[in-house]
Design a protein around this nucleic acid. Structure first.
Lengths: 250, 250
DNA sequence: CAGTGGTCTAGACCACAAC
DNA sequence: TTGTGGTCTAGACCACTGA
């Protein structure tokens, strides 16, 4: 087979057998070149593969270290919607992250991955509400949250304004826009990080992100039966898992 | 920035704007070389990135085509366990896939990603039950399912045999091994495909797989409180999504 | 400030499947 | 059969950052 496959497998084995324990450095590229008798390009192809697999973390001038695999943080599955006088909540646990920047609201064309969720065509106008969440103390970005709303429904309304008032966006939909009692549905997907996501989440290009999407469905008014919001959160897939109980049907 | 970033972005734009619609071929590497004025290595670096992003599908001698993004197949979330006289079932819909090969049962060391699920140390003995599921008509592999059972509990028992008798593995645990009424918990994660997974699922190396894990917990007997099985299914993340309803808490 | 990984070039041969 | 992507080499310069 390909030489770089062999080099990658040899490094993988050396890591899993403990020859290079987590946190340790593997030999520099020049030494791997000599060790395996291949060119630097081939060494780099193998290291790149193990990097996207999450095993290695190359850093300029600092060498390439074996990533310490942190326990994944557990996200509870949002199967229930709660509300109090302040608005709706979907998680039973309060997330420790805060918005690192003021949320941005823009209008633009609907991206291909969102169109089927909203029942729109690619390029149709949508209102995009973007939030970057993380640890304010360290500045570390932990999740990206983006809401897409159909432009024909949301543009020019309070939904397209940065502040949505007391109770938030869902109270506006239910009370002010007359969209009835809202329904929600959840979807979990995974895909490679985009260039922007990789930059913001500090990921190597091509590493997977875990996407949790919550769709909001109107039950009355001019939006009846339509998906009026798709809220997509994206996180480093190596750092998070979604966990849920399985109950016995009697 | 890097030249290959520019090339990748130019190709990405050309694809999303419809210049290269899904199913069409992009120019061959030699032409892209000339078009962007870079070396072939740089062109290939850009194409490799878009391949792991799932946008392109290079095929030898056939050129590189823009992948038609199929609608993701929806997997219902297994939040309930059903049973009838034949055994337990976890999905409300019957999957259209069948085992493409007879299931294999082996014993081996516990891999790092499974150890925390079973409460074992890496390398501890485990029983591994492997199934490859797909479409028998086309031979297309759609999902890989692997069960890990702690070796100290399962080795030498009926759980380590290919056939597990009427009612399957869970009836053996509940009725024959005295492990009480079983509990289950689900976990959803995503990661890069391993080399083996990429080969079996026909994926480019490094593309994401969506993992749905069901853990079985004993409530009585010598295994009381322990996770006695971790069933991990892996699928091409670009082909599947997990969907679930969100109900209003009153 | 020097050594590491990051990028890029020009060229070569190979393997495989479409033609 | 042949043209495409797949792999590999030897060498060069750069940019960042940790020693």
């Amino acid at each position: 087979m390909a030489r770089w496959h062999d080099v990658a497998q040899a490094l993988r084995d050396a890591i899993t057998t403990g020859q290079y324990p987590p946190g340790s450095k593997i030999p520099k590229e020049e030494e791997l070149e000599a060790q395996f008798g291949v060119s630097r390009t081939t060494v780099r192809r193998a290291v790149a593969q193990l990097t996207t697999e999450g095993l290695l973390l190359p850093v300029r001038r600092g060498g390439t270290t074996v990533r310490t695999q942190p326990e994944r943080q557990t996200l509870p599955l949002d199967t229930r919607a709660y509300r109090d006088e302040l608005g709706y909540y979907f998680s039973q646990t309060v997330q420790p992250w805060r918005a690192l920047q003021p949320p941005t609201v823009t209008e633009g064309p609907c991206p291909p991955d969102v169109a089927p969720l909203l029942g729109l065509a690619v390029g149709d106008p949508v209102v995009i509400r973007d939030r970057i969440m993380g640890n304010p103390a360290t500045g570390r970005v932990m999740q990206l949250a983006t809401s897409y709303l159909p432009g024909d429904l949301a543009a020019g309304t309070v939904l397209a304004q940065p502040g949505t008032g007391p109770g938030g966006i869902y109270d506006r939909m239910e009370n002010d826009l007359g969209w009835g009692t809202l329904d929600w549905e959840g979807v979990i997907t995974a895909r490679s990080a985009t260039a922007d996501e990789a930059r913001l989440l500090d990921l190597a290009p091509g590493t997977p992100v875990l996407c949790v999407t919550r769709m909001t469905i109107a039950t009355a008014g001019d939006a009846e039966g339509r998906v009026v919001e798709a809220n997509i959160t994206r996180r480093d897939a190596s750092l998070f898992e979604v966990r849920y109980p399985i109950t016995r049907a009697e």
